[in-house]
């Protein structure tokens, strides 16, 4: 079972609301392909949490599963409550860069620190797309946006390096131009015990691409691919802060540490003995 048609079992049949050429649809497709390849017949063991923004509409209400569409930035703490009460469920968070890395950043870092056993998929389109194209914490330096009419004057934040140091068990970054790598990466993330984070650098033709002078989506995807360098490349390590270079690849923590659920179970056992 691998064709897109057969993956319809995972969908409610409600059309996605994305603009033509949006990377959100790609991420949805690749995610369902990964789930399919992992052998899931349906999404009954999953709970999807998402916040506010275009990427938050990937699971809600389109996936045929339980989904909680939360307030802006709060998908991770809602997911925390779900996962702690129901550790048997696969809890997956979808969100954009504004949702996950902007307004909800502290929750992201703390979930990684706690090694909460969930997967966070961040669709990074480098812009606040739903609200019309304002500068984000991920916008490359010097970019024209509606709130930086003379070019953005702040360097972007590197989620990959941040989360690797915050304690995540698995971190990856790919673009929508790396579908094969992304599929494998999502499979790894979903089967990783502990906190896993996958960033997908994605195209927003409407609020980012056309204003940067890209003629079409194809050109944007080509740009995403040519700007990408392997994360273990010495140049990626030196991290050009302007955000034009996209360091892609994976990070796996060498030592296995207990998940938050396991740590709490230990504590509960200790409490029972007192």
């Amino acid at each position: 079972m691998s064709s897109a048609a057969q993956r319809k079992q995972f969908l409610r049949g409600i059309p996605f609301p994305f603009c033509a050429g949006c990377g959100g649809a790609t991420v949805a497709t690749v995610f369902l392909k990964a789930v399919d390849e992992l052998g899931f017949k349906d999404l009954r063991s999953f709970v999807f949490c998402s916040g506010i923004g275009c990427a938050s509409w990937i699971p809600s209400p389109h996936f045929k599963a339980d989904s909680i569409h939360t307030t802006h930035g709060r998908s991770i703490p809602v997911a925390t409550g779900v996962k702690l009460v129901r550790p048997d469920l696969n809890v997956v968070v979808f969100g954009g860069d504004g949702d996950v890395l902007g307004i909800g950043l502290s929750h992201l870092i703390h979930a990684a620190r706690r090694n909460l056993d969930i997967t966070v998929i961040m669709v990074n389109n480098m812009i606040y797309g739903m609200t019309g194209g304002q500068v984000a914490a991920t916008t490359p330096l010097g970019t024209w946006t509606t709130t930086t009419p003379y070019g953005s004057y702040e360097p972007p934040l590197d989620a990959f390096r941040l989360l690797a140091s915050a304690g995540a068990s698995y971190v990856a970054r790919w673009t929508t131009a790396h579908m094969a790598e992304l599929t494998e990466s999502l499979k790894t993330a979903l089967t990783t015990k502990g906190f896993s984070f996958v960033e997908v650098v994605s195209q927003c033709p409407t609020a980012f691409g056309r204003r940067r002078g890209f003629k079409n989506v194809k050109e944007m995807l080509r740009w995403l691919k040519t700007q990408s360098i392997p994360i273990d490349d010495p140049e990626a390590a030196s991290m050009p802060e302007q955000g034009e270079t996209i360091a892609v690849g994976e990070f796996r923590r060498r030592t296995v540490i207990p998940t938050l659920t396991e740590s709490i179970q230990q504590v509960t056992k200790r409490a029972g003995k007192q």
């Binding site: 909680i68 307030t71 709060r74 703490p77 809602v78 997911a79 925390t80 409550g81 009460v85 129901r86």
Partner: peptide, 11 residues
């Protein structure tokens, strides 16, 4: 937010 998540998980 986590209280809300826990409530939807049935607790």
């Amino acid at each position: 937010a986590s209280v809300i998540g826990a409530s939807w998980a049935g607790t």
